[in-house]
Structure formats: structure tokens, C-alpha cells
């Protein structure tokens, strides 16, 4: 569905933002794109949807060359940007003006998502808070039924109940022919939502693994004392004892702690990344 091969991109000569990035993403999956601030997550998303053109390399998204930005391509890809500004009109008028551009738009779905998000239907967009505007845009994005949904820091500006609503809406909305990439540095927000993790660091994609494979290779546990566990790969002090990431030698089942995993990969690259190359 999305194939990027040896992509190179930079805003200025000699300062690469994406360096030899290769990715292959399949439909029916939610990808979590993780990375520090400035790691190139947004630039990668913009390259996928054709807002930025790579200097070299090949990208193919749902059979299109993104840099051509053909309308039939743009109808099937929706980017929810981190910063946005909605026009001064009410939701009904927004729908009336923008939905004709998306032939597969699901009106009833949109209103259902608005209900989940507890957004009043006929409000002026400018009268809504930034978080509420973001929820309108998230509902719109999902209702377009675009084959590729790109979300850049979607949980920024959302309060805690809204983050829960966001997870609920996203989890129940993905069709088999859709692919979603959620880019964030607030990795905890994606817990139990994503199918596959992509981690970017220093202009490269350093890891792309399904959640199932991560929990197969690593175990995530809480222990009272570090002596209870054999040679942890990464530890963090917790309220009671320690949170530990260790090699899953006994094939135990544990729940992926996204934030722990992300920190572990960034700080212990040399010991963790080779595990996934086996």
C-alpha cells in the first residue's frame, strides 16, 4: 500500500532530515510512528502525502506517485496536521463545502464520531476550543474513508477523556483496506491501539516491528527488586520497585508498554535492535 525505497529528503543541502528511509506498509493496520522532536516524523508523513518531494528515492502510495498530487490520489489520502486552522463557519456548512471533494465520505459515520467526541452538531467552528476543533477534524478524517490516514500528533491538545475517546474511535473505525499512520512523541497515547511500531532516530527508521513480535522478543514487567529479574535491558524507577524491559527467554506473555519500549530502543539501541534482526 505504501512503499518507500531509499528516500532522501532535506530542507537544506547538507542537512538531511530523512536519510535512506525504506518502508513497506500494508492495509488493515495502524502504524505508530514514534520519534523524538525533530526526528523527521512529520517530514516523513509529508513525503508520503506529497506535501514534500524527496531529493532521491522512490515512493509509491496506493499506486500513485505522491509528488504529482493527483486529485484521485488526494481523495484517498487524508492528513490530519498537527497545526491547523478551520474556516469561520458552522459544522454543517463545513460538511457542505468539503465533503463533495471526497466521494466516499460517510455522513452518518461523521455524526456518530461527533457524538462519541461529545461535539454539538451545529456549532460555529470558531466557537469551539482547539481540542474540540481537532476532534471535528479527526471525525472528518475518518469519515472520508480515505485509504491512507496520516495523523500528525493527533492527541496534542486533547484532554485525558478526549484521548480515551480518540482511542475508542480509531480502534473501531479502521477497515481492511485502510492503513493509518499515527505520528506522536506522546507514545503512551497509542498504548493498545497500534499494530506495528516504527521508530525514527537521527534521520533513519531504526525499527519497524509488529507489536506481537516485540512482545515475543521482549518482556515488560514490574519488579520490586532488580535481583528478581535476570539482566534487564532497560529499567526505570517506578512507584513501587522498577519497570523492566528484558529479553523474553521464557516466552512469557506481557503487555507492551510503549513508552518503556520507546525509551529502551533509543537508549539501548545496541542491545535491543540486534534482537529484531534475528
Amino acid at each position: 500500500m505504501i512503499s518507500l525505497q531509499h528516500l532522501h529528503f532535506s530542507y537544506r543541502k547538507g542537512r538531511p532530515v530523512l536519510d535512506d528511509v525504506s518502508l513497506s506498509l500494508r492495509p488493515g493496520r495502524i502504524y505508530g510512528l514514534l520519534g523524538r522532536n525533530g526526528a523527521g516524523k512529520s517530514s516523513l508523513l509529508y513525503n508520503i502525502c506529497g506535501l514534500l518531494f524527496p531529493q532521491s528515492g522512490k515512493s509509491e502510495v496506493i499506486g500513485f506517485d505522491p509528488s504529482k498530487r493527483e486529485p484521485s490520489f488526494l481523495q484517498q489520502i487524508y492528513l490530519l496536521p498537527e497545526v491547523f486552522r478551520l474556516p469561520d463557519m458552522d459544522i454543517a456548512q463545513y460538511l457542505q463545502l468539503f465533503t463533495p471533494f471526497y466521494p466516499a465520505f460517510d455522513h452518518s459515520g461523521f455524526h456518530q464520531y461527533l457524538e462519541v467526541f461529545e461535539i454539538p452538531r451545529n456549532h460555529q467552528l470558531s466557537a469551539l476550543s482547539h481540542g474540540q476543533q481537532k476532534k471535528v477534524l479527526i471525525a472528518f478524517a475518518i469519515a472520508t474513508r480515505a485509504k491512507v490516514l496520516l495523523m500528525d500528533e493527533p492527541t496534542n491538545g486533547l484532554d485525558i477523556p478526549s484521548k480515551h475517546q480518540f482511542r475508542k474511535v480509531i480502534a473501531g473505525s479502521l477497515a481492511e483496506d485502510q492503513c493509518m499512520i499515527i505520528s506522536t512523541h506522546q507514545v503512551k497515547d497509542l498504548d493498545s491501539l497500534i499494530d506495528e511500531v516504527i521508530i525514527m532516530d537521527g534521520t533513519h527508521v531504526i525499527l519497524q516491528e509488529p507489536v506481537t513480535r516485540i512482545t515475543e522478543k521482549l518482556s515488560f514487567r514490574h519488579v520490586m527488586s532488580l535481583e528478581e529479574t535476570e539482566a534487564p535491558l532497560y529499567t526505570e524507577g517506578a512507584l513501587k520497585g522498577y519497570a523492566v524491559v528484558a529479553v523474553n527467554r521464557r516466552q512469557e506473555h506481557s503487555r507492551l508498554d510503549m513508552e518503556m519500549f520507546f525509551n529502551a530502543v533509543l537508549l539501548e539501541k545496541k542491545s535491543i535492535l540486534p534482537l529484531f534482526k534475528q
Partner: peptide
């Protein structure tokens, strides 16, 4: 002109 408007404008399915 503005980055936030620009993203929305450029992503609109129109040639």
C-alpha cells in the same frame, strides 16, 4: 501563505 492553511489547501483533492 500560512503553513497551517497551506497544508489544508494543498491536501484538498483538486488539480
Amino acid at each position: 501563505a500560512r503553513t497551517d492553511d497551506r497544508i489544508m489547501a494543498m491536501m484538498l483533492p483538486a488539480s
